[in-house]
Nucleic acid binder design. Structure first.
Length: 437
RNA sequence: GUGGGUAUAGCUCAGUUGGUUAGAGCGCCAGGUUGUGGCCCUGGAGGCCGUCGGUUCGAGCCCGAUUAUCCACCCCA
């Protein structure tokens, strides 16, 4: 049969067989973030379009051609968030968190939306884990958030990844640098590609990122921002490097990291892999000292990053990272007959109420099929319960790993008896393991 | 937005110069044990061969369009 419809282009379903991995990643991320003092924050999936125009920047590709923007029924312009920082900063301003104790440290798990042509590691709806630290101008904060990303990646078993850092200066040194850059590229005007010719007027910094071979060649000789930092930015960057080295975090300086969101200044960084195709930036972020003020908040700095969770899973797979298996079913009950089926349903309900993962047959299949099913569930024990046994309050229980069976009595307190049985198994497992040492 | 590859079963893929009723492995279901899983054996279900049009006596195969998907550019997570 033909399906009625299919998922929209560039979206993905997370199926039950995927969800253990998603939960593992999200829990690990939130947990590590909490240890660094970052607590989860939830903001709306859509915001006023103006927020992103102001935060991300009118001239960026994200705003100009990638946003899902629509008018609601009262004709307000609404946009599905293309990234997470703007919403977090907006919420922090709106609830006056920045008038309280600083820094404000928040984390988030969100889906983001960008209208792009999908390819490996790039979707129209994708998921991010991110952190934002608001209020501290010190490179201590830059180092802290980088350390957090680094630890998260390590914990998740991501090995094939490298950290690149750069400084793109501040509102004092960048304009002077841009003048120099424009002068330099103007002297090579006739060789630049078409898009770079417009970039020359709007944002010459972007030419450095151009992938066309000729522009690349010209850009290679261009003056680097990192060589034209003001003393304050110079000092900030030096201290960040000192701190990363003190923490034993490996990094490389990549003077060509520019980043396409306008709010960044000073520190920018990316965790990049070559193992998942052309879209190798798994985590990207930096400092955004003017953003809070730009959005109508106090004059306070900020720094943060976001990690693409689909790309993260790709690089985890490429790194052969292990993810935990779903919790096994502790007891599967295979009833034979109508009365037994009702009793089985009641028993598993009791066990579940006691916190045990238990299941029973609902398909009315043969015992053989039920055993097969129990095996696929990874059941630790399977109980066979026939109408005749039920009448005698008895049942057979089988330990699936060994195949051993035993007859048991079904008392009123069977649930508790079973919990004790499982506990004993755990104790004997531990004893066996200890004996082997 | 630009370029290239691909489209056959739930998944991974065969399918001869165009020729009867389209295949395999895995998965699913059932049987081999009238009440016991894994291994093995046997059988079964499941396909508008992406869609529309064209060429032809005849198209899964050739041509065109379209859609989807993958990859790359651009950009970013």
């Amino acid at each position: 049969m033909k399906p009625l419809t299919s998922a929209p282009k560039g979206t993905q379903d997370a199926l039950p067989s995927d969800i253990t991995r998603w939960h593992y990643i999200e829990r690990t991320a939130l947990d590590i973030a909490e240890r660094y003092g970052f607590f989860e924050m939830r903001t709306p999936t859509f915001e006023h379009t103006e927020l992103f125009n102001r935060a991300v920047g009118d001239t960026t590709d994200v705003v100009q051609k990638e946003m899902y923007t629509f008018n609601d029924k009262k004709d307000r312009s609404i946009t599905l968030r293309p990234e997470g920082t703007a919403g977090v900063v907006r919420a922090a301003i709106e609830h006056n968190l920045l008038g309280g104790q600083l820094p404000v440290k928040a984390s988030y798990v969100i889906s983001c939306f960008r209208y792009e042509k999908p390819q490996a590691g790039r979707l129209r709806e994708f998921h991010q884990f991110g952190v934002e630290s608001l209020g501290s101008p010190s490179p201590a904060s830059d180092a802290e958030v980088i350390a957090l990303a680094n630890q998260l990646l390590q914990t998740l078993g991501v090995s094939k990844i490298k950290l690149f850092i750069n400084s793109i200066g501040c509102k004092h040194c960048r304009p002077a640098y841009q003048v120099k850059l424009r002068e330099y590229f103007s002297s090579h005007k006739e060789k630049l590609c078409e898009t770079c010719l417009t970039r020359l007027e709007t944002n010459p910094l972007r030419i450095i990122d151009c992938k066309s071979p000729i522009c690349k060649e010209i850009a290679a000789q261009a003056p680097k921002m990192i060589d034209h930092l003001c003393p304050e930015c110079e000092e900030h960057f030096a201290e960040l490097r000192e701190r990363l080295e003190a923490m034993g975090i490996n990094y490389e300086i990549d003077p060509d990291i520019v980043r396409g969101l306008d709010y960044y200044c000073r520190t920018v960084f990316e965790f990049v892999t070559e193992a998942i195709g052309a879209q190798g930036t798994v985590c990207g972020g930096g400092r955004y000292d003017g953003l809070i003020e730009e959005l109508g908040g106090p004059t306070l700095p900020g720094v943060g990053w976001a990690m693409g969770l689909e790309r993260l899973q790709l690089v985890m797979a490429a790194s052969n990272a292990e993810t935990p298996a779903p919790l096994p079913c502790e007891l599967f009950i295979a009833p034979m007959g109508r009365a037994a089926s009702i009793a089985a349903g009641t028993l598993v309900q009791k066990l579940r109420a006691e916190g045990v993962s238990a299941d029973c047959e609902t398909m009315g299949r043969s015992l053989k099929a039920q055993m097969r099913y129990a095996d696929k569930l990874g059941a630790v024990y399977t109980m066979v319960l026939g109408d005749n046994e039920l009448a005698e309050c008895k049942a057979t229980i089988k330990e699936m790993a060994t195949g051993n069976t035993a007859e048991i009595t079904l008392g009123d307190d069977f649930a508790n008896e079973f919990i004790k049985l499982s506990l004993q198994r755990c104790i004997s497992d531990v004893a066996d393991a200890a004996a082997k040492l």
